[in-house]
Design a protein around this nucleic acid. Structure first.
Lengths: 187, 187
DNA sequence: ATCCTTAACGCAAAGCGGTTGCTTCTAGCG
DNA sequence: CGCTAGAAGCAACCGCTTTGCGTTAAGGAT
């Protein structure tokens, strides 16, 4: 969540963190992401700029933190009673959200201000968790299911690669194509 | 190459572009990438900072340009006389270069200062070109070969995804595993 | 409950990167 | 050879970023 370890999680530190994060979210929708500056966020949050610089070190790292929060799934994947439909619907939903302008902006921000790669790792963990829930359901039903790593490599990775490196031409059909590929390979 | 079209390719403009790019490369190795600033690069290149700001608009876009140059393959993929070995060797080489600290830094820079996505698109085009050369050779030999898009999706994309989102635990064995996967699926 | 330690924040000043209007130069062309 | 316009130089201004120091308050110990 926060790039620097919070030695004192309670009280004032927590309040400041919350105030700053909400200030970023509010200002993002009010003045736009490109107009954000540390002093602006600080003023809205009721803190001094130096506080933000000392805690986060950089506007990018702060935006990276907020972006990761917004990339966190709000609900477990929908249950449609079968592996194929579960995975297909989830992949379509995932691609739709991630390929949207705001989704791409959050992904970029998350990668951008992330010196140690922990925020990026968190993003992939979110996707991995969702996939594992779907696969666990399939296993409970007795269905043959691929490994989670296989789904990450052959469904999530291609979508993310195209979102980052090949903008344009991404639709639900592509997500279905990828899912069909892994399920065929499984047998 | 340059984000803003060069209406006057010859003479002074070309000299300035060359001087600025070499200044970036020199200073990157001397003071480190994080210590780069536009005034520093300008001083080394013998131009004024405003020149760089007007031509590139931003330090990030300048670094993105230089990064794309360094990500361009220096030679066509090696020919080992067979699709399997060609693709395996190329994938191992690709992963080795891209997963290195400097490779990851260049990838990040290329993605970072790239408002329209053209630099990122150039990076994926480099990889796609290399793959297509390998597949064309295989076709000339009469070998069964997968589609280029399939190789991009199932070999390049997983490697890039892990480089960006899951640093650590990447080795040549993983590249071989991915290549074996696409070749098995092809038949 | 109170004191002690120290991490975290506020404040303010200084440094410097980023921005911009204007001028000067020069490449390309009639 | 002169004209035109795009590009670079120059310089001043703005505001983000940094930093030292004093103050506050969270967490633990007595």
């Amino acid at each position: 969540m926060s790039p620097r370890p919070m030695a004192r999680p309670g009280g004032r530190s927590a309040r400041v963190q919350e105030a700053v994060h909400t200030a970023v979210r509010e200002l993002e929708s009010e003045v736009g992401r490109d107009a954000l500056t540390v002093p602006l966020v600080a003023a809205r949050a009721g803190v001094t700029p130096s506080t933000i610089y000392r805690r986060w070190g950089d506007l990018r790292e702060l935006l990276s933190d907020v972006a990761v929060e917004r990339l966190r799934p709000e609900a477990p994947p929908e249950n449609h009673g079968g592996l194929a439909s579960d995975l297909t619907v989830w992949a379509e939903h995932f691609l739709d959200e991630m390929a949207s302008p705001s989704g791409r902006a959050y992904i970029r921000d998350a990668l951008l201000g992330d010196p140690d790669g922990s925020n990026a790792g968190q993003c992939s963990a979110y996707a991995a968790d969702q996939v594992e829930v779907i696969l666990a359901r399939a296993a409970a039903r007795g269905e043959r299911a691929p490994e989670a790593e296989t789904v990450i490599d052959h469904v999530v990775a291609p979508m993310m690669y195209r979102i980052l490196f090949r903008p344009g031409g991404l639709d639900a059909a592509y997500a279905r194509h990828l899912v069909a590929g892994v399920l065929d390979a499984t047998g």
